[in-house]
Design a binder for these strands. Structure first.
Length: 804
RNA sequence: GCCGGUGUGGCGGAAUUGGCAGACGCACCGCACUCAAAAUGCGGCGGAUUUUCCAUGCCGGUUCGAGUCCGGCCACCGGCACCA
């Protein structure tokens, strides 16, 4: 009799052995080929680990354990993305320092992760709130500042006039403050910005060089939002002022029957003496400013606007005077903040024209522009367009742009939807921005020797009434001297957003204890790029884009050796509650990993997380399913009872063993963990059917199972005396010649329908099969009395006889 | 509205890319073991009017053969959303 399977004991045992042996620490030497596997480092929240974390972690743990067995030097690090609001809010509420809360949460997370047996290299842990870490976050910021990529600008925020504080869009309901009911306006506030827009094209082009799952690429491309068009100048009648517009449809210029400016467009103020209804325009502008982004997008898209009476623009190709309107359907933040309206061929312009009775002139034939805007560009032909008449849209675009450039009234232009990154937060728990402001010298960077600029101790982390950072009230910290002229100066009191620390953490893992640089170049050259990065879709346009931006900047500055940080990016699906809904405390469907591990063990938990369904898809949790995985491990455990001597194969199972090695090896690489596990289950079922298993076959099974369920694999390996621990073993190989049985069963179809099966020798050629198989008595019986018209054979699969 | 994804048994899901639909697991049912139950083992498990027929969201097409390809819809999920 063997001892019962006791996961609690063996998991603890092996976790200690691995830790004592430093089994999973990356080797210092650069002799072996390297593999850098990365998962998104967790935010150590007070709630502890979620079942979603282990899904990503286990997946790459499987890949990394397999890579080690394949002879790679593997870096699989872990760290803590620890700055952020939840911790700060908890600290405020409970009067504890956020650093203390953070430390406690990290300790809890680490303990939870260790219980699951991930093969992380804990000797390289990073923590974004550690001054030794954020020194380098600040250092990178200063490099950006030096290159003019960090700048301070006035940006509109939602401002509650009663609370005197900025609000998130979600906090504005019906144009009033959610908390106090006070009026909310857009207030322009001075903020630090990062010029990610300078990198729009590089970030777009870089996507062609990397192996990211397609939907990540698509989402990033959409977010960057490149469009090609032209800028065109329209003269203001009776003035030398011009209105510049951006359009993707310069071919429709003859159909531009009015213009629209964003309410915030500077021309309004410039021309206010000529605008006859200025009061009305001001009222409209105020009304537009009151709308939050939420209202502008979520509520009605009903067009509103006001004509700028007394102002006319001149269509540069028709020479006609056209009216000029202001409307909030034109955004001041995109293009030039002004458009030429072509109601016949743009849906929004069409709606606006219909509402306000503006003329609609068809310039591309093919639709009925009184009924709807005709926006098809594929096969339209230009009409009512002077020298463009008869041209197709694509040709017309070329022709008109050449014409505009020649006349000096327009030019080709590429625009991006991507906006610069608002980098300021008026909060305590973030990296201080390492700049001081001097009245004489302006913004001056803190010298590198004085980094890090430490977060000062404060008594109160609460946001201030003025909406300034809590740091702004600590005079002793704020007041300093200018590093440039030595005169009095004030520190920047805003902190960085949470995305700062996570934009480069994968670089610090490479050389985490380096005090002279964020990482040494020879280490970076060896380890970069990250070979495989798995994470959530929710970070596609935030973290993933930001970190690509920082990395690309560091590359351009010569600090890192690769233009892209990540070679391959995959994405896991969300784990839903048993009811198919998103897990949340309020829905009461949260599964706690600790409870599950206590019940079924870490190996079964890991196994279930990988078996439950396709890795990239959202899957509901099933406690029964998880127990089924525990059952499978029990079955594996009891294979010890039927262990027979011999390194060879269990009778009749040689083919299946080789098939399993191949399938598991390949499926792991494709992240098809569910089918890899199914294949191992099939194999185990066969051992049971045979009633015995050889040592050789058990060896193979345990090696294949180890990446998913490492504790049980190591324990059985040891108990059966199979040698050195598995983490030092080699990954098994399959033999191509042994993948096929000597005979195969093929389906016999008559007119495409299965009518029978025959067993034939494997490896028959198509010609031989088509000649010989129809002669078999089983087949003859099926086609008796019919005229054979055609025979189709797929070797090893089927024979289809087409009869008349 | 635009972009992307997904629709297969009671459930989670398989299916060499056009070749035996439902692997593997869950749930359920039966049998063995047991005084009994649990656990375990073995077997069954899409539907029906069962020699055959119908079944992969719906309608049509291509093909010897379609879950897979083509055309047209529908539903759900995710992202973006007045981006000119």
């Amino acid at each position: 009799m063997i001892t019962p399977y006791n996961p609690a004991a063996i998991e603890k045992k092996w976790q200690k052995i691995w830790a004592d042996a430093h089994a999973f620490e990356a080797e210092k030497s650069h002799d072996k080929p390297k593999f850098y596997g990365l998962i998104e480092f967790p935010y150590p929240s007070g709630a502890g680990l979620h079942v979603g974390h282990p899904r990503s972690n286990t997946a790459l743990d499987i890949i990394c354990r397999k890579r080690r067995m394949e002879g790679y030097n593997v870096l699989y690090p872990i760290g803590w993305d620890a700055f952020g609001l939840p911790t700060e809010n908890y600290a405020i509420k409970n009067h504890v320092h956020p650093a203390k809360v953070t430390q406690k949460n990290i300790d809890h997370f680490r303990e939870q992760l260790k219980k699951i047996g991930f093969s992380f290299d804990y000797s390289r842990e990073v923590n974004t709130t550690d001054p030794k870490y954020y020194k380098w976050t600040q250092w990178i910021f200063l490099r950006l500042f030096e290159r003019g990529l960090a700048y301070k600008a006035e940006m509109p925020v939602n401002w509650c006039t009663s609370c005197k504080c900025g609000l998130a869009n979600e906090e504005v309901v019906g144009g009033v403050c959610e908390r106090c009911g006070g009026e909310v306006v857009r207030k322009v506030k001075s903020q630090w910005m990062l010029k990610i827009t300078d990198y729009a094209q590089k970030l777009l082009d870089g996507l062609d060089e990397v192996d990211f799952i397609e939907k990540v690429k698509v989402q990033q491309r959409n977010w960057i939002g490149r469009s090609e068009g032209a800028e065109v100048d329209f003269a203001v009648a009776g003035s030398d002022r011009k209105i510049r517009v951006y359009t993707t449809r310069p071919d429709t210029l003859f159909g531009a029957t009015y213009m629209v400016l964003a309410p915030e467009h500077p021309l309004l103020d410039e021309m206010k003496d000529r605008i006859e209804n200025w009061d009305e325009v001001l009222a409209y502008r105020a009304q537009a400013a009151r709308k939050s982004d939420f209202e502008r997008t979520e509520l009605q898209k009903d067009k509103t606007g006001v004509e700028l009476k007394g102002l006319k623009a001149v269509n540069p190709v028709t020479g006609r005077e056209i009216p000029v309107w202001a409307s909030d359907y034109v955004l001041v933040t995109y293009g030039t903040g002004a458009i030429m309206a072509v109601p016949a061929h743009d849906t929004r312009d069409w709606e606006f024209a219909k509402k306000f009775g503006l003329p609609i002139v068809e310039v591309v034939a093919g639709g009925n522009v009184q009924e709807a805007a005709y926006t098809d560009v594929a096969d339209g032909v230009l009409v009512n367009s002077g020298f463009l008449n008869g041209l197709r849209v694509a040709q017309a675009k070329q022709t008109i742009i050449d014409f505009l450039e020649e006349k000096g009234i327009g030019s080709r232009k590429v625009n991006f939807k991507l906006r610069d990154w608002v980098f300021s937060r008026q909060r305590y728990w973030g990296e201080p921005i390492p700049l001081v402001h001097c009245d004489k010298c302006g913004w001056v960077p803190v010298p590198e020797s004085e980094l890090p600029v430490l977060l000062p101790e404060v008594d109160n982390y609460e946001p201030t009434d003025s909406g300034e950072s809590p740091l702004s009230v600590i005079d002793s910290w704020v007041n300093t001297t200018c590093p440039h002229c030595g005169g009095p100066a004030r520190r920047e009191t805003d902190t960085m957003p949470q995305w700062a620390g996570s934009s480069w953490y994968f670089l610090r893992y490479i050389d985490p204890h380096n005090d002279d640089a964020f990482a040494a170049m020879d280490e970076l050259k060896y380890w970069l790029p990250v070979d495989w990065y798995n994470g959530g879709m929710e970070h596609t346009t935030l973290h993933l884009l930001y970190s690509r931006f920082w990395h690309r900047f560091l590359y351009d500055e010569g600090y890192v050796p690769t233009p892209e940080p990540y070679r391959k990016r995959t994405s896991h699906g969300m784990i839903l509650g048993a009811n198919g809904e998103k897990m949340s405390k309020s829905r009461g469907n949260v599964i706690n990993p600790d409870d599950t591990i206590d019940e079924i063990g870490a190996d079964a938990f890991r196994l279930y997380e990988m078996f439950m369904g396709a890795f990239d898809q959202a899957i509901p949790w099933s406690t029964e399913g998880a127990r089924g995985c525990r059952r499978f491990l029990e079955r594996v455990w009891r294979l010890q009872e039927m262990l027979s001597d011999g390194e060879g194969h269990s009778k009749g199972l040689e083919t299946l063993i080789h098939q399993t090695i191949k399938k598991v090896s390949e499926d792991y690489e494709k992240m098809k963990f569910n089918t890899a596990i199914a294949q191992m289950m099939t194999l185990v079922n066969e051992f049971y059917a045979a009633g015995r298993i050889t040592r050789g076959d058990l060896r193979t099974l345990l090696l294949l199972l180890d990446p998913v369920a490492p504790h049980i694999a190591e324990e059985m390996w040891q108990q059966c005396g199979l040698g050195e621990p598995i983490y030092r073993q080699q990954w098994p190989k399959w033999d191509e010649d042994k993948l096929q049985e000597a005979t195969v069963e093929i389906a016999v179809q008559i007119n495409g329908k299965v009518r029978g099966r025959v067993t034939v020798p494997a490896g028959m050629s198509r010609e031989q099969a088509e000649r010989e198989l129809p002669q078999l008595p089983e087949v003859q019986r099926l086609i008796a009395g019919k005229t054979v018209k055609k025979i189709v054979c797929v070797p090893g699969r089927l024979l289809n006889v087409v009869v008349g």
